[in-house]
Design a protein around this nucleic acid. Structure first.
Lengths: 240, 240
DNA sequence: CGTCGGGTTGAGGGTGATCAAAGTTTGTGG
DNA sequence: CCACAAACTTTGATCACCCTCAACCCGACG
């Protein structure tokens, strides 16, 4: 799928766009690149002049504390533009890295800003897109702040499964997840050792099969429950 | 200060606005209300048709887990519009509550949307405003995920002090904070008992004086350091 | 003077961290 | 195809931060 197609598909999930809007989006100039895993796209403190549309693969955003501990802030799947905010917040306050081999499309700020001015409905769609970050972050605060390790992991898996299904890239209960247990630890505010034990717990409970990087969730409804997962915060529908 | 003045003042911190923009903002219809502490403004699941500009006092956003534990997601100070996002994300995914006696101004969505369409620079300013949430949430994820209790508390105090100073409402090292230790616990992902011990630690270290709800930070530079606080994520300047 | 919300302090326990080592998979070069 | 290294997973033992439970204190307010 072409890069701008993917963007259009994503925006349409949230906002009604007409044929002219679609055409304008497809005309956006992009530079497509394929990047290996663990490659920094932008780093904390930088001032990018382009946005990064993820076409294939996984990205993640992270910060590292003064004490040298890493915290993953979000995981991104195709169709998302994790640094769209840089249109208005010029200095990046975190790192953006490829999690797997990924295909990304860079779109310069300038034509993007022009587009938002000329086509208000596209502007609105993009605005909405920048807003969808925050609810996810909020839920993650709850996750690391108030849930036990098992529940945290179950919640993370339920979230990723649900999001992948929304874009039609996978069934919610079976997908490839290019994260090591160390990465999961950094996403959950735990140590890798403890993640491993907790993976074992979910496995023994019949809620998770994990081999290499392929995830299978044999009983998704029970996993959701275990993870206290409610997809309201994903704002998946036009009306929500 | 009039409600819309406060908003204008806030927006100008982030975006350059001309006299016409200012006039348009001041013409926004508002309904001003004074609310007692601990009053729900909007709740998870609701679909507000107005935004809530905080004029005086403190608000906080929170979620409650299935297990009944509360997590505070953010603390809001005058000039902020904590539910501005509801312009595009219609269902609220968390609660918004007054923390102290507060004066809030409700602005209906309709004229606000019209304003963004008619005055793109104001639209941009509002867009930017909705974006400033996310960096704070990200930092909070790091706070609860990767920092010890003392560092967390120091970080929270440094953040609030810095933000209050930015809007000129207080010196950064001395301010009124209408939060009980229980509230702080819910903001930090800790128990009230442990917050109390950690307050004691900061006190004994000469970094905090706390009486009822008035905070004094005798050595702000050292507190910042203790809290690993770097204000980059607050995006305080036009250029950042 | 009694009650209530909130702050303070103590004792004991548990979740998850730390340290350590062995096992397994993946990848690389010979 | 094998040898070897590197990365990741798994498991065990011990430790500590923070939680839980409980009691007491204190000031505000009726």
């Amino acid at each position: 799928m072409k890069a701008t197609e993917r963007l259009l598909q994503k925006l349409k999930l949230g906002t009604a766009l007409d044929a002219d809007d679609a055409k304008a989006i497809k005309r956006l100039p992009v530079i497509v690149k394929e990047l290996p895993p663990q490659t920094a796209i932008v780093r904390e403190g930088e001032r990018p002049h382009q946005c990064c549309l993820l076409v294939e693969g996984f990205l993640c955003r992270s910060k590292t504390t003064d004490a040298g501990k890493r915290q993953i802030l979000s995981i991104h799947i195709p169709g998302e533009v994790p640094d769209l905010q840089s249109l208005y917040l010029h200095v990046l306050d975190h790192d953006l890295t490829t999690q797997s081999r990924s295909v990304v499309a860079f779109i310069p700020h300038k034509p993007l800003r022009a587009l938002t001015r000329e086509r208000p409905s596209v502007g609105g769609a993009l605005w909405r897109e920048t807003l969808i970050d925050a609810p996810l972050f909020r839920e993650w605060i709850v996750n690391v702040g108030r849930r036990t390790a098992v529940v945290r992991l179950a919640h993370l898996l339920a979230e990723i499964g649900t999001r992948l299904q929304t874009i039609g890239l996978a069934s919610e209960d079976r997908f490839e997840l290019p994260m090591t247990q160390l990465d999961m630890a950094d996403a959950l505010g735990l140590t890798p050792v403890h993640v491993n034990r907790v993976v074992g717990q979910l496995r023994r409970a019949g809620l998770l099969e994990l081999r290499k990087q392929s995830v299978f969730l044999p009983d998704f409804p029970r996993l959701r429950e275990r993870g206290e997962f409610d997809d309201l915060y994903l704002h998946r529908t036009k009306t929500s």
